[in-house]
Nucleic acid binder design. Structure first.
Length: 627
DNA sequence: CTAGGGTTAG
């Protein structure tokens, strides 16, 4: 009787401690639970100690010595506990060489325990270790072993982990082979492979698999939304998100993040507001990742003040949140605000800046022409924050110096920097030459770029623009020949904006296919005439073809952002801001027209080009000439 | 136990 009672009490205690361990949210709480375990004499229970170890992994507080100490107090660890120990060791591999090695533990386990066949999740843990440590050799050996273990070819855990192993090691064809040979597949098998394809940029294969997959759950749908978004196909991401909702699939924070990021890429406000509404309906705006994504979305939609409000309202902010806010402010030319946020982060919070944060700070300085501040922050990267500046940081410095008119020093930096310059460095230099017209330096930068990025069309265009601005038409035609010889064609420049009903209208240069094309052209012509009365002279050097002046004028007035502007003047409510997004950099003439139009038409105009934002108001642009 | 997340550059 009393034994039965004690047994019952024991089971209750065990359950109690189990939940105490599960709910421990910090390593110190876990320690308390462990002390309790010890006092109650339950520290010898494989069941509880295994749970303790698993929780250790969940909390990412991976101390192998602690794990071993806990483990060694159990006199007769069962296979579950052994597996938990192996998992702890395998998880530690994400942060450094695990000690003891999971495979060593595995062989110890095989020696310590009587020889029933290994558990599938023990084997999965080993495979997972190979996957996180990208050990393809070890992994394929284990794979070979699984073939000889009865039942493993039908075991979903083992097979799915094998797919993951090959995916992580970049062996997509091997992952596919495992998938194709599986006797039973579940949604995880399908989704693993779909995600692998999206991460390799192969949306075609992802779509195909997704179509064939018999079950599509929230995670699978999310994988597609995120896949489109990350492969720069934001419209399709939003379409998939819409379909997902139509299919009645539940939505969570993760699915929304893909849609939010798609809105950020499109940069259109009404679409963004729609997704924001969904976020609020579900009550997800306090989520750290959702909040950070929203900050980015509003910044990229031109509503930097709204981005700031969301940022301010967040309870938790991490390095992503801060980096996003800083980069957003930088792209709007609000360098002082960006620096304030950075200072607040470094001086008042525990959040440590990373390389991306500092790129944001440097671009803030660059877009505001703050050369000396930029130099100080550059020095602080290594001296204060302990980060070794990489090529991207140097690219920011080259940009900062070059943009501010010091192309010679920028070239010197590119030549003497201690890390190998990448395309960004030479591209920044070439960009500086575009602004300040230094054909001889442009030539140096472009030659490097043609080696590093032979297919990047923009570099050829930039170089020919520099030559054209300097009237060096021979060189212009040489560059064009080079482009043709390499089979490169300019991808069309376009601008887009949302109409009142939220429909996105896209305009191409000289394009007359828009249904309102005639009205747009007429409105534009009238606008240009009004501006001419106010002293506007077209900047013909913005046209990089060697054609007659009248042809240059015609081409200038066909620029897609001017068409979008005229469309905006026709359709956006009086007093409403005209918001235009552009896929390449705005040209000097269009920039001037926007400036003048903002005052003559009494309109705020916001243009996002591929570099940054321009807020035109009362005849001036927020970029202050730095673009 | 195994699948989906946010930041950067010319």
């Amino acid at each position: 009787m009393s034994a039965a009672f004690r047994h019952c009490r024991h089971r209750e205690l065990e359950a109690l401690l189990f939940s105490a361990i599960s709910s421990a949210s910090s390593i110190s709480q876990l320690n308390q639970a462990h002390t309790l375990l010890y006092r109650l004499g339950l520290h010898q229970s494989s069941y509880l100690v295994a749970k303790l170890l698993r929780r250790l992994v969940d909390l990412r507080s991976l101390s192998n010595s602690y794990a071993l100490a806990v483990f060694s107090q159990v006199p007769a660890p069962n296979s579950f506990l052994w597996t938990a120990l192996i998992r702890t060791s395998a998880a530690a591999a994400a942060f450094g060489p695990p000690c003891p090695h999971p495979l060593v533990l595995y062989s110890l386990m095989r020696r310590a325990l009587p020889p029933p066949p290994p558990l599938s999740f023990t084997f999965s843990a080993l495979l997972k270790f190979c996957s996180t440590s990208r050990s393809i050799a070890m992994g394929s050996q284990l794979h070979a072993q699984t073939i000889f273990i009865g039942g493993f070819n039908e075991d979903l855990f083992v097979q799915n982990t094998l797919i993951d192993l090959y995916v992580q090691c970049g062996q997509l064809d091997l992952a596919r082979k495992v998938f194709d040979e599986m006797l039973v597949r579940d949604i995880i098998s399908w989704t693993s492979l779909i995600v692998a394809y999206t991460r390799h940029g192969d949306m075609g294969s992802a779509e195909e698999l997704f179509g064939e997959s018999p079950v599509k759950d929230m995670v699978a749908w999310t994988a597609m939304v995120t896949g489109y978004s990350q492969n720069a196909r934001p419209s399709e991401a939003l379409a998939a998100f819409e379909q997902m909702r139509m299919a009645g699939v539940a939505i969570d924070e993760v699915s929304l993040v893909g849609a939010i990021s798609a809105c950020a890429q499109l940069g259109v406000v009404k679409r963004a507001e729609g997704v924001r509404q969904i976020v609020q309906d579900y009550g997800f705006e306090k989520n750290l990742v959702v909040g950070s994504a929203l900050v980015d979305m509003y910044a990229k939609c031109g509503l930097i003040d709204e981005a700031r409000r969301i940022f301010n309202a967040m309870d938790n902010r991490n390095v992503y949140t801060y980096s996003t806010m800083i980069a957003g402010l930088a792209s709007h030319g609000k360098a002082l605000d960006a620096i304030k946020v950075f200072d607040e982060m470094t001086m008042r919070t525990e959040v440590k800046p990373n390389r991306v944060t500092l790129i944001g700070v440097l671009t803030a300085c660059s877009h505001a022409g703050m050369v000396e501040a930029g130099r100080r922050y550059f020095t602080s990267i290594s001296e204060v924050y302990g980060i070794t500046p990489d090529a991207d940081h140097y690219a920011c410095m080259v940009d900062l110096l070059g943009r501010a008119g010091n192309a010679e020093e920028a070239l010197e930096l590119a030549r003497t920097m201690p890390v190998e310059p990448n395309g960004g460095v030479w591209g920044a230099l070439l960009g500086a030459c575009r602004i300040h017209g230094k054909p001889h330096i442009a030539k140096i930068a472009a030659e490097k770029l043609f080696e590093l990025e032979p297919d990047a069309i923009g570099n050829y265009v930039l170089l020919s623009n520099v030559y054209a601005s300097a009237g060096m038409w021979n060189e212009v035609s040489n560059v064009r020949k080079l482009m043709r010889g390499r089979g490169l064609r300019k991808n069309p420049a376009s601008s887009w904006m949302e109409a009142r009903d939220g429909v996105v209208h896209e305009f191409f240069a000289g394009d007359g296919s828009h249904p309102m094309s005639r009205e747009i052209k007429a409105a534009l012509e009238e606008l240009i005439n009004r501006l001419k009365c106010r002293g506007y002279t077209p900047i013909l050097s913005s046209i990089v073809y060697d054609v007659s002046e009248s042809e240059k004028r015609r081409l200038l007035n066909g620029h897609s952002e001017k068409l979008a502007l005229a469309f905006g003047l026709l359709t956006v409510d009086t007093g409403g801001t005209i918001r235009i997004v552009k896929n390449i950099r705005i040209c000097e003439d269009c920039h001037l027209v926007m400036c003048l139009a903002s005052s003559s038409e009494n309109r705020e105009i916001v243009v996002r080009d591929n570099m940054r934002f321009h807020h035109f108001k009362d005849g001036v642009c927020s970029c202050g000439g730095f673009w």
